[in-house]
Simulated assay, not measured.
Amino acid sequence: MKITNVEFVISAVKPHQYPEDALPEFALAGRSNVGKSSLINKMIMRKGLARTSSQPGKTQQLNYYRVNDSVYLVDFPGYGYARVSKAQRQQFGEMIETFLSDRKPLKMVLLIIDIRHEPSKDDCLMYDWLKHYEIPVCVVTTKADKIPKSKWDKHVKAIKQALGFRGGDRHVLFSSETGLGREALWDIINEQIEVTSEEAEETEEVSIENRG
């Protein structure tokens, strides 16, 4: 996908701060320091727009990035970092649950997991949460460049088994270093936008027929 325009829009905490232009949104969820910011920078081909940090737990809001004036990438706070206070974790959890359960422009969540490690308890809870709310999910296994190519299938299989990966969900193998998976992930995002647009049109047609 050719990137022509990218803009950091807002770090939001409350629903009234979310953008109101109804562009499709794709949220990135994952444990602290899993590489969400690096993935965003590779996806948008900008080195430093999404700030990366060696300090886990730095992202504490929903960070909105508008791409080509047509879609938002929304970076969630990382979860599972021990030094974040219990009160902060609860606050983050409530913020994300509110977003997931009530955010109409949300089209899919990209669940980011380091391919070198099995999913954490929080990863599994997030996946189950998404299934509960019937939110489309794509599991993105990052840092593929960190292990030999011959081990990719074995690691991906273990991750899917630990999550209880359901049929119909998507998976992309990704590397922010090499760009592996970038185009595949953009293809999935664009496909999801098309599918949800068609579903919305069909719903509107049914509604008009019923009113008639």
Rank of each mutant, 00 (worst) to 15 (best):
A82D: 04
K131Q: 15
G93T: 00
S197R: 15
K47H: 02
E191H: 09
K107T: 13
R166A: 15
L180N: 05
V74E: 04
S70E: 13
S120T: 15
V137W: 03
R51Q: 07
V13Y: 13
C124N: 11
E177W: 14
V84R: 06
E7L: 09
K154W: 00
M45H: 13
K154M: 10
E194A: 13
K86I: 07
E198F: 09
E118Y: 05
S32G: 06
N33E: 05
N33M: 02
R182P: 11
V84I: 10
K104T: 13
I44G: 03
G35L: 12
M43C: 02
E25G: 00
L106G: 04
K143M: 14
D69Y: 05
R103T: 08
G35W: 01
S54H: 10
Q17T: 11
D114M: 02
V67L: 09
I135D: 05
P119C: 00
N33C: 05
I147Y: 08
K154H: 05
R89L: 00
S101W: 02
H171N: 05
R211V: 06
Y127H: 11
S38N: 06
L106I: 03
V109L: 10
H171C: 01
K131E: 10
R211Q: 06
A12E: 07
V34W: 04
K149Y: 10
A82H: 08
I193V: 01
A29F: 10
I115N: 04
E205C: 07
F26T: 01
Q192A: 03
P24M: 01
A87K: 04
K104E: 15
A12Q: 08
T52P: 03
S85T: 12
H171T: 08
L163R: 04
E20M: 05
V71S: 05
T52E: 00
L173M: 15
G164I: 01
L62I: 00
K86E: 12
Q17D: 11
K107V: 10
R211F: 00
D169M: 15
E118S: 13
A158D: 11
D21A: 06
S37A: 12
L173A: 05
Q61H: 12
L62R: 03
